[in-house]
Design a protein around this nucleic acid. Sequence first.
DNA 1: TCACGTACTTACCTTTTGGATACTGTCAGA
DNA 2: TCTGACAGTATCCAAAAGGTAAGTACGTGA
Lengths: 126, 126
Amino acid sequence: MREKTERIVREWSDSCDAEVSIAVLGGAWKPSILTLLGEHEVLRFGELGRLLQDPTSRVLTRQLRELEEDGLITRTVYRQVPPKVEYRLSELGVSATPLLGELTRWGTQYAEQQRSSLNRVPSPSE
Amino acid sequence: MREKTERIVREWSDSCDAEVSIAVLGGAWKPSILTLLGEHEVLRFGELGRLLQDPTSRVLTRQLRELEEDGLITRTVYRQVPPKVEYRLSELGVSATPLLGELTRWGTQYAEQQRSSLNRVPSPSE
DNA sequence: TCACGTACTTACCTTTTGGATACTGTCAGA
DNA sequence: TCTGACAGTATCCAAAAGGTAAGTACGTGA
């Protein structure tokens, strides 16, 4: 576990564990990474980068490391040149996919709702 | 909508709307605030503060304003002295409660799992 | 000998977020 | 006249998060 995750797991124990989920799943690219890994089973570093439309490698590396530390994905290194590294969902990661589905569904619904009210009221009266 | 939320709704449209959900629900105290409002129907500013174990009023105010801007809660001001302000879930906020439930359930499960593996391996072999 | 591909790392910068502290306005009641 | 309740604001600060740009390692093929 990351230090941050561990702190939250300890401090907020019991009530409001939603904070824990958000600490683990929240962060630029993380939902996308997990969703992609759910769809593709295995992806290499470069493949992920391309599918995500090129976050800088520094950022992608950090997100992947954090997900790994938090136990959601596994990282397999093949000792060869040029290097080859494979990422896939861990058991814990797989257990999160229904939740990711719910997050996506609600997010889609929310975005549609907000977009349509933006159209109805182009600028709020002023 | 907050500017941040709007940016995310626009830029990430369609795929990976989980980012939207996390943008709206994530943030210190927000899941707790929404859960409490789901349980109590109506809460005043001071009541919320006490139930959350006293975040500074500045922080609480900001979280509440953001939730209001994003359309999840409503704010009712009674023009009287001393002031009285009531917060409750909007329709959109109510629609998020099942999702919050899922976040809490997965978070609880995750925390338990991680706590038990912490006990099994007090320090990872080094 | 040199560029190439892959998966990074290092150093640095900017923005966002959360929080500590102190202050405001107003009326009722002591 | 002073205090207290309530619901905030105003200022400032530190840490976290996200991002840019450039460099690293190493064997293969031209």
